[in-house]
């Protein structure tokens, strides 16, 4: 079993940190590399060009979001790389599960390590809905981890 390329989706939650720690241990063992992926869907009401509402969300806002997400994931990757493992960060704007599966196919990843619960903390309603979809549709094995509570 060789995990040369490990994909770790992150939303900077506790479970995601735990997943990253686990991935680092695995990568160290097999001198693999980690790709840290942050997917941030933009949940704004849809606006149409031509309607006055469209002007409410200027391009500036999207650029600002992107800059922040890029900086955030780059910083997390840098911190993780202190472990001695090669970690690269990437931020994309699309719904999390689709982005994770697409990235796993694109790399291609040998393993996805992810938390079962993200930041959307409505435990019983949203429990692992992203993890669930990824487990179901991923092209490679998925290791799901949970932060100790």
């Amino acid at each position: 079993m060789k995990f040369d390329c490990i994909l770790v989706p992150t939303d900077f939650s506790d479970d995601a940190s735990r997943a990253l720690e686990t991935a680092i241990q695995l990568a160290k063992l097999q001198s693999g590399r980690i790709v840290l992926l942050h997917a941030y869907p933009i949940d704004l009401p849809i606006t149409y060009p031509g309607f006055s509402g469209g002007a409410l969300v200027p391009d500036e806002f999207y650029r600002e979001l992107r800059t922040q997400a890029d900086a955030h994931v780059a910083q997390a990757a840098q911190e993780a790389a202190r472990s001695g493992v090669s970690v690269t960060g990437k931020a994309v704007t699309s719904p999390a599960s689709a982005a994770i599966i697409a990235e796993a196919e694109h790399l291609p990843a040998d393993l996805i390590v992810m938390g079962t619960r993200g930041r959307t903390g409505l435990k019983h309603i949203l429990l692992g809905s992203v993890a669930e979809r990824v487990v179901r549709e991923a092209p490679c094995p998925v290791l799901t981890v949970k932060a100790e509570h």
Binding site: P141, V142, L143
Partner: peptide
């Protein structure tokens, strides 16, 4: 299993 396991779970596609 996804929601209830306390240890990591390795899902084989």
């Amino acid at each position: 299993v996804l929601g209830g396991a306390l240890c990591p779970v390795h899902w084989v596609p």
